[in-house]
Each structure stands twice: as C-alpha cells, then as structure tokens.
Design a protein around this nucleic acid. Structure first.
Lengths: 235, 235
DNA sequence: ACCCGTCTTTGCGCCAGCGCAAATAAGTGA
DNA sequence: TCACTTATTTGCGCTGGCGCAAAGACGGGT
C-alpha cells in the first residue's frame, strides 16, 4: 500500500475547506487521523454515534440508508476529496449518523473528530457558510430525486441515474468508445428504487438497441443522448 | 383584515433567528416588506429568480415541485414563523427557487431581500450556523422520505404521512374525539407519491375499520396507534 | 332553498414492475 | 486449469396500484 502524507494543499480540494487559511488546514490535519479500510467494510453504520467527519482521500464509498426490514437505498457515492458523515458530525450532542458508509473498494479517509469540528465551526464563520452552501445543494438534489421517484417511471429513473453517473463517475477510456461505469445491477437498482431484475431487463433491452454495452459490474454508454431522451420520457 | 405590526420579539420565534440580537432583528424588519396573498396564489413559482427569503407570519403555505409534465409532489407545508424560499435566496447569484410556494389559505409573510440576507450571513456567523443546522434537518427528513418512497408500500406511506401530519398540523378538538386534519385526498396523494383514488380507497377502508372518520377535506384520526402499526408494516 | 363547482367514492379493466427459480456467465484463488 | 463464488439473465405468474368514468356528497354563494 502506498502511504501518502496529506498536505494542506490537498485539503484545499475539499469544497468546504476552500476558504481555509493554511494555518486552519494545518490545524485540521493535526487534529485528525487517517483510517484505511478494505473493500466492503464500513466507516460507520447508520445509528452509530457520529464521532468523526470524514474526507475521503482515496477509494470510493457508498452512503446508504436502510429501513427497519433491512431494505436499503443508495443515497450517494463518495469520491476522493468529498466529505461524508457531516450530517451526523455537525449536530451538537451525541447525534447518530443517519446513514451507513460502506467502502466500494479499498479506501482511505481523513477522520476529523466531531468535537474539534464543531469548535472550528464556532470560530470560523466561512466554514459554516460554505458547509451551509453544500447542504443547500444536497437538499436540492434530494428534492429532485424525491420528485423523480414519485412521478417518473422506472425506465426513466434508471436512464436518468445512468446519465448522472456518467457525469460524475464516468471514465472515457482510450481504446474503447463510450463512457464506462462500474456498478452492479443491484447498485443501480438501489439508486433508483427498483429491483435488480428490472434493471437487468432494461439494460438488456438497451443493449439490443445499441444504446450501451453491458458486462459484469460494467456498463459502457455508447449513446448518452438516447438515454437522455428516455429519461425525459420521450421514448 | 387585521393588520399586525411585527415586533422583533415575534421574529425570535423563527428558529434561524433565535440567536439574533434585538438590533439585528430590527435591521431585518427594517429591510423587509410584508406580502399578503389570498388562498391559492403563489409567493413564488419554481424557476423564478429568488429575490426574497420569506417568513410566514399567518396562514399556511404549500411547497411543491413539478416535473416537466406538470405532475407535482408536495415537499412540505409551512406554518407561521417558519422560513421558506431559503434554498433559492441563499445561493449567491440570481439563483432560481427550486420549488413553488402556494398559499393554502389567506396568508401573510415577511419578505427579506436575498441581497440583504446574504450581507447579514457574511457578518453574522451564528446565522450561517443556525441556517446550516436547519438545512441538516431538512436533508435528514428528505433522505428518510426518499427511502420510504423507495422501499415502503403505498399503504404504509399514507399511514405514515397521516401520523406525521397529526404531529405537526393536527388539532385536538374539544367536543369531538380524535385528531383533526384538513387535507384533501389529492393533498395526501401528492405527499406520498400516489394517486387520489388510492388514497380515497385506503381512507374508506380505514374508516370501515374504525381507525378514522373522513369528510370533505377532513380526516379525523381516532386510533393513531393503529395507523402507526400500519406504517410499520405490521398490518 | 337552490345551483354549481369541487371533492370524493367505487366499479372495472389493465399493466408495469415485482420476485421466484433456474440456467448461465464471469471473475478469483489455488 | 478447475472449483467455487458471485453477478446476470430470462421465463413465468402474479398483484399492487393506476386511472378512466360516472355517480354521489358537500358546501359556499346568491
């Protein structure tokens, strides 16, 4: 494993830390620890007391929420230099995390104690401000997804999810045409509130139509525009 | 119409203003205007440029979002001394409101210009902080509702909505037993991502079972506990 | 009291999407 | 290379919930 020291400069990539002074960044680093986990393990589970705010430095993490019966939904996938666990860590008392954070591959994160975080927030106004701005964008996204789930058909929601994923997690490979995504049918199902069977059937259908190519935990989008049309209910 | 001057003391009831000094509250009042609208009109529409942050002083307002085809979902109902329009107003440039705000009855609201609001946020750290805390609670609620919509059946979602509404909008009347709600079948449908027909059928069913009594735009909950059981999927 | 607009109910037919089950494909480690 | 695990596909049957349509029920206004 390559061990990497995190520099203040690295931390500047974190949206919420963009206005921090170098001193602040040093202070944050000094008060934080790094945690490395292998694929499949959890940084925290829904309901755990929120002891840390995390910043992912490498790997990939899935945020999900389960209902009492164990069925779960994917709320979001975290990529390097994005924050997670903030919802729990910011709330004053020993608040619980409202979701679970599971690694999708071997991952490392910077863990900042909630207590220290809150002391920073009290004395660094721009931190609250930037965090608030991040929160507003999350709310908007959740509201949009909520509306989508309530009003759109499965086909549209899955197409939409693929388009969104292509934007944030897509890789344009050299030798192959199209945009490559690494998600299982189950992953996509949990993101769109449907089942792995239905996702499989839709993908097979779209593959037959030449819109994409599928593989094990792989989806290569060939005609993004056609997906957008499906997402908009025009097809 | 009874015209009421709003005092700083009144404004203290607004969660986000709870730590404001009296001077701050005065300043806010001086820079704001009041808008009164009759039932059915809009404080703003989804997509409008967010010129104001609103605080409802009387009446009731419905926040909703529509998709391109005009289908809509209810995001939240606003009661006096709650804020709305914050999502749009806080974002720096000429950002649009992400939802529409329609009055459910004659209503009055204090309208604070976004520009002034943002200048306050920059110089009053506790405002950002409190606003951020409000945002975190919204996110948690939206995440929970999203999960509910994705994993629970209609029956459970409707039962859940009634329970929640009983908590925030329910009125325990003197002469009649039970908790009284004033929502149409259509309203409940839009809150739970279903149709007015299905809601009607469910309510009729529950009325037959004696769990509640229904009327035109009226639902009187007699056995809240039974609804909770249904919401939990135990019935 | 009556009219009219709006809300509600309910029968009926339909179909999108679920989910089991069993076959198949694709990695993984020894 | 083989055995084993995990992901995917697809046939099949089923049903929850949608949505039209038509018939009430309610309530406000004149």
């Amino acid at each position: 494993m390559t061990w990497m020291n995190i520099s203040p400069k690295d931390l500047k990539q974190v949206v919420v830390f963009q206005h921090c002074t170098d001193d602040d960044l040093h202070l944050i680093l000094k008060n934080s620890i790094t945690r490395s986990l292998e694929e499949g393990s959890f940084f925290f589970m829904q309901g755990d007391e929120a002891e840390y705010l995390y910043v992912l430095t490498s790997g990939q993490v899935k945020l999900m929420q389960s209902n009492p019966n164990g069925q779960q939904v994917n709320l979001r996938t975290i990529y390097p230099w994005q924050m997670f666990g903030a919802l729990g860590a910011v709330r004053s008392d020993g608040a619980p995390y409202p979701a679970s954070a599971q690694t999708l591959e071997d991952s490392t994160a910077l863990a900042t104690p909630s207590l220290f975080l809150r002391s920073m927030l009290e004395t660094r106004p721009y931190l609250s401000f930037d965090l608030m701005n991040l929160m507003t964008s999350y709310i908007q996204e959740m509201q949009a997804r909520y509306r989508e789930l309530a009003t759109e058909r499965v086909e549209q929601r899955v197409a939409n999810a693929l388009v969104r994923l292509a934007g944030q997690a897509g890789i344009k490979s050299e030798k192959e045409a199209g945009i490559e995504l690494s998600f299982s049918r189950q992953d996509v199902a949990e993101m769109t509130g449907t089942t792995l069977y239905t996702v499989s059937r839709l993908l097979s259908d779209w593959e037959r139509k030449g819109i994409l190519k599928t593989g094990r935990e792989r989806i290569r989008i060939l005609k993004p525009h056609d997906l957008v049309r499906i997402a908009d209910g025009l097809a």
